[in-house]
Amino acid sequence: MNPRRKKRLIITSSLVIGLSLAVGLVLFALQQNIDLFYTPTEIVKGKNETGIKPEVGQRLRVGGMVLAGTVKRDPTSLKVSFDLIDNGGGIVTVFFDGILPDLFREGQGIVAQGELKNATQINAFEVLAKHDEEYMPPEVADALQGMDHLKTDKNK
């Protein structure tokens, strides 16, 4: 093989190897870092599309409305728990240790990211409420569609 072709071959093959290695690594890392989104009802009854329930210990994101009257705070630390509900009627409890976002309040749509502790409880490491009162994450908006805000109060 003449040296020019040989050089090209080396360059091309190293390109191909490098790229496939990169893509392989990316896919591998992706597998471990994809967090599926669930609504409270989907956690209780299984995903709408597939009927699969999340496993205990799985990392996931859950979005719904904070049920009024369910926010409980630990008097000595920042530990807090609250219930999330959506239009399917499922309720899950979220546990969080940290500072809730500025726009967190009862009756507000939020997204929590964390691990499933048992069938209806989630240990969250992050709670998000977006920085705009009119704004709601599309997933949460879907999950809450048709719900009257007032009816989410437990006492009514």
Partner: peptide, 9 residues
């Protein structure tokens, strides 16, 4: 379904 790819990735 909707997913998120987090910082760790």
């Amino acid at each position: 379904g909707s997913i998120s790819i987090g910082e760790p990735f």
